[in-house]
Amino acid sequence: MLATTPSRITASLIQDGPAHRADLARKLSVSRTAVTNAVDLLLDSGLVVTLRRSAEGAVLKDRVCLSPQFGLIGTVIVDFTETIIGIGTLDGRLLASRVLPADPQARGEERLRRAATVVRELIEESGDGGELVHTQLAVNTQADRRTGEVLGGIASASWSGTNPKVLLEEDLGCPVRLENTVRLLALAEQLERPEVSDLVYVQLSYGVAMGLVVDGRILGGSRRGAGELGHTSIDLEGRPCSCAGRGCLMQYVGRSALIADIEAVLGAGTDVPDLFSAVQEGHAGSVELLGTYGRRIGEALVAVCNLLEPTTLVIGGMLSPAGEPFLDAVRRALTDRALPLAVDDLRVENATGSRRSATVLDAGLLCLRQDASVRATVISRSLDTFRTRRFPQVS
C-alpha cells in the first residue's frame, strides 16, 4: 500500500484541494501511519508542503498542500473586454494574477501572445521555482476543444487564421486545455453558489451564449460547442446573421439590436448606461424597452427550462446591472410560457461569480484539476522525478 500511497495522495490533493492527514487517510481508506509516512517522503522531496498555523512550525494537524515544485498550472480567460490571467498550484491555490483590458475588436492572436508574456512574468515574479505543466485557456468563440480549430465562421472574425490552442502551447511550451469562455463563467457562477447542484448561465453581450453546470462540472458537449443559444433561430425567414443563418436570437437581443432599440427610444448616440439611467428616472419608453428585452430572453429560455429543468438560472452580461426589473420580466415570461414543473421552483438571479476575476480564475484552475487525463499526466511527471531521485518503488 505504501508504494502507491504517494500517487493517491497527490491525486486527492489535485482533485479536492489541501487536506489534513486524517482526512486523507479516511478518503483513501489507508492507515494514518501509511499517510504520514508517505507525506513525510513527499515533504522531504519538496513536492508537498504544509500550511502552518503558527510560528512554532508544522504539526500533524496542519493541512497538506502541493508545492509549486510539484508543478504550476496557468489559466487564461479571453472575454470580450478583458483577458484574465493567473497561475496557481495543482491543488487550486491561486498564486498570482493579472487582468488586461482589451479591445473587443482586437485580434485573438495578439491577445494570446500578450497573455503568454504575462504568464511568464507571473511565474518569474512568484519566485518559487515552479515549472508550468498545463494551462487552461478559455476563448470567446466556438472552437474544437480537441484540435483548437475555430469554427465560428464570420462570427469569429477576430480569431480568423488563429488556432488558439496550438498558439498558446507553442508560446508557453506546455499542454493547453481549451474551453469556451461563457461555459467557464458558468462554472464561476456555480462556485459562488456551492449549495446549487445545477445551474444555467446566460450571458447577454455581442451575442447570447449559455453554459450548463451540473454537480460542479461543465457540460459543454463532446467538443465544447454546446450552449450557443444566440444562434438558435426564432424566425427562419428573419434577420440575416453573421453565422450565415437567419432569425438567430442574437439578432434580436444581442448588443447591436439593443443599441438600435435604445437609440430609437432615447436618440442617436445613446448606449446601455443611458437606458439604465432613464429607467431609474421612470422614462416610460425605457421601462417598456427593458421589459420587452426581459420578455424576449425569458421566451427564448422556455425551451431550455422545459428540456433541462434547472434549479437556478443566472443572467449576466450587458443587462445585468438592470437588476430586478429586468429579472422580473424574465421570470414572468417563463411563468407564462414554460411548463409549471420546469419553473415553479426556478431561481432566476443576477450574475455574481462571472464578474469577479478571482472566482473566474478559480474556475479556470478547477477545470484543469477535474480533468482525469491532466491529473494522470502531471502526477506521472512529478512522481517519476520523485522516484528517480529517491524512491525507486514509488508509483
Results as ranks from 00 to 15, higher is better:
226 A>G: 05
332 R>A: 12
131 E>P: 06
202 V>C: 09
68 P>K: 01
151 L>G: 03
106 A>H: 02
225 G>S: 10
349 E>Y: 00
256 S>K: 14
231 H>L: 10
360 V>I: 14
369 R>K: 12
294 G>H: 08
212 L>M: 06
28 L>Q: 08
124 E>Q: 13
308 L>P: 10
136 Q>F: 12
287 V>T: 15
218 I>H: 02
251 Q>D: 03
324 E>K: 12
260 A>N: 11
333 A>M: 04
338 A>P: 07
27 K>P: 07
210 M>N: 02
210 M>H: 03
393 Q>Y: 14
292 T>P: 00
97 S>Q: 15
245 G>T: 13
183 R>M: 07
215 D>C: 10
8 R>A: 14
367 C>K: 06
3 A>Q: 13
113 R>Q: 14
224 R>T: 14
256 S>E: 11
331 R>E: 09
115 A>T: 08
196 V>G: 01
208 V>E: 01
7 S>Q: 13
98 R>H: 13
293 Y>W: 09
156 S>Y: 01
240 P>G: 05
230 G>S: 02
18 P>I: 12
39 V>D: 00
310 P>G: 09
84 I>L: 02
252 Y>L: 03
169 E>L: 08
294 G>M: 10
41 L>S: 14
123 I>D: 03
165 K>Q: 11
61 K>P: 07
151 L>H: 01
216 G>M: 12
41 L>G: 14
234 I>Y: 00
323 G>L: 12
14 I>W: 01
248 C>Y: 08
67 S>D: 06
179 E>C: 07
15 Q>Y: 00
42 L>Y: 11
277 S>G: 15
267 G>E: 11
28 L>D: 04
32 R>E: 14
127 G>Y: 07
128 D>R: 10
154 I>R: 07
200 V>N: 05
174 C>T: 15
304 V>R: 08
63 R>T: 14
190 Q>G: 05
56 E>M: 09
275 L>S: 10
48 V>L: 00
250 M>S: 10
318 M>A: 06
251 Q>Y: 03
17 G>Q: 11
169 E>W: 04
194 P>M: 05
357 S>E: 12
360 V>T: 06
247 G>M: 04
209 A>E: 03
33 T>M: 14
187 L>I: 07
141 T>C: 12
380 S>M: 11
330 V>G: 03
